[in-house]
Amino acid sequence: MTNKAEKSTNEYHVASFVAYPIISQIFAVKAAILAVQGTEIHATSEEGKIVFTIEGHSYKDIGKKMDTIRVHQGIINLSPVYHQILDESIEDDAVNENKVVNEFTPQTHI
């Protein structure tokens, strides 16, 4: 029996989280976060809260990575903060057709 490869998408997802670790395990928790592909730690508070992001290509990809981190024995709680989805195919189409994406026209107010 062969495993199905996950369907490739043109989406780019980035989600941010705050992890609340057991203070005595903070270094192990940080290592576990960084061991997951597409993660980056942005800040750690004095109280031990860890702010990090996960990048992926689908909701499912972000969810799998989040679950891998969430079940670490040193994490008390993992809270999602933000999730952004970009459709890269729109930008690719615009570039291929020589269209301007996100055009900005300055306005003069009198």
Rank of each mutant, 00 (worst) to 15 (best):
I75N: 03
A28D: 11
Q84V: 15
K60E: 15
I75Q: 03
K65W: 07
A35L: 00
N3C: 08
I62F: 07
H109F: 15
G74R: 08
E97H: 11
D93Y: 15
H42W: 13
F104V: 15
D92E: 14
S58D: 05
T9H: 02
T9W: 06
P106R: 09
E47T: 14
Y82A: 05
S58V: 05
S16V: 03
K65C: 05
K64W: 06
S89M: 02
G56C: 01
H83P: 06
D93S: 14
D67E: 15
N3R: 13
S79Y: 07
G38S: 02
E97T: 12
D87K: 06
N102G: 15
I90L: 14
S89T: 08
Y12P: 02
I33N: 02
K30R: 14
T39C: 00
R70W: 08
Q37T: 11
Y20V: 10
A19G: 11
K7F: 07
D87F: 07
S16D: 08
I22R: 08
T44K: 00
H109G: 04
E91W: 05
K30T: 07
N10L: 03
M1V: 11
S58Q: 06
E97F: 08
V95T: 12
I23K: 13
K64F: 13
E97G: 03
T68Y: 06
V14K: 06
S24A: 12
E91T: 12
T108Y: 14
Q37A: 12
E97C: 03
I23L: 15
S16C: 02
V29H: 05
D93R: 15
